[in-house]
Amino acid sequence: MILKKIGTALTLCGALIAAPLNAAPILSDLVFVVDESGSMGNVQANLRDNIGLFASILTGTGQVNAQYGLVGYGSGNPAPRMITDLTNDTAFASAAQNLVASGGTEPGYTATAFALNALDNQSPTFSFRSNAIKNIIILTDEPSNGDRTFFGTVGGQAVSETILDGVLTNNNALYNGVLAGSSTISSYQSLITSHGGSVFDLNQFNSTDTSVVQGFVTAFANAKLQETLDFCQLNPNDPACGGNGGTPVPEPGSLALLGLGLTGLVAIRRRKMAVEA
């Protein structure tokens, strides 16, 4: 009988130990870097109108806790500018109304460095959470051009592809592009694939057909969710991955039950020893 009780207690403890553990959500800070040249007005409107759908998919499973920031670049003054600091999707949508579509020079490398607070003497800067993954998403139909020192420097130099590669590496940032045109894709693809991202079709996001746009946003958000989960598979000790160095944390209730199971096991063991004595 005593052996049976011991076996029961061991089974209970084993089940508790093997039970699924709940990890804290992965923290992800996303900054959209949006071309403000004359051809991008419809894309800007679609971003504003669909950020809620994007956010609901990215965070809807409870696996990701996200914030959203916005950079505009390439307007009449091509230098990058902060449209909104990191915030929720509702405030982002409101701020996105301040995007314009009136320029013709698109220094996308400089704008990406700006999104990572990497420009010399930059002000303002984005309020990244210290333990969040940095996700940069650029939307443009033009290759990076006009990256002159006048619009921003890193280490005193104009932002080239090589310099931007170093900035992305130093920030361990994910980089994605929603792009159109072969020259545009060529301008960014190497950086994107080297930093955990993918190239997505801007033409779908530039559609006036709501169903096409929403289909694109759904696929894009699901891809970003999977990309974020994959990041934590590859970087399990990153502070963003579960908020505990990548280690899942048992729920307090599970710990309490485990304690009760172990207490019962000890009691049974003591009774057995008393009988034998």
Score class of each variant (00 low, 15 high):
residue 105 T to L: 14
residue 105 T to G: 00
residue 108 G to E: 02
residue 108 G to K: 03
residue 109 Y to N: 13
residue 110 T to H: 02
residue 110 T to Q: 01
residue 114 F to M: 12
residue 122 Q to H: 04
residue 123 S to L: 12
residue 126 F to V: 00
residue 127 S to I: 04
residue 128 F to E: 02
residue 129 R to W: 05
residue 129 R to L: 04
residue 130 S to F: 04
residue 133 I to E: 09
residue 134 K to Q: 15
residue 136 I to M: 07
residue 137 I to Q: 04
residue 138 I to M: 11
residue 141 D to G: 13
residue 142 E to G: 09
residue 145 N to V: 09
residue 146 G to L: 12
residue 151 F to T: 10
residue 152 G to I: 03
residue 154 V to A: 04
residue 156 G to D: 13
residue 158 A to Q: 14
residue 160 S to R: 11
residue 160 S to N: 13
residue 160 S to V: 11
residue 161 E to W: 03
residue 161 E to G: 15
residue 162 T to K: 06
residue 162 T to M: 10
residue 163 I to H: 05
residue 166 G to E: 13
residue 171 N to C: 08
residue 173 A to C: 12
residue 175 Y to W: 10
residue 175 Y to T: 04
residue 177 G to D: 03
residue 178 V to G: 04
residue 180 A to D: 14
residue 183 S to C: 04
residue 185 I to Y: 06
residue 186 S to F: 08
residue 186 S to T: 15
residue 186 S to N: 15
residue 189 Q to G: 03
residue 190 S to V: 06
residue 191 L to M: 11
residue 193 T to K: 11
residue 196 G to I: 04
residue 197 G to C: 07
residue 198 S to H: 07
residue 198 S to E: 14
residue 199 V to M: 12
residue 199 V to R: 00
residue 201 D to T: 12
residue 205 F to H: 05
residue 205 F to N: 07
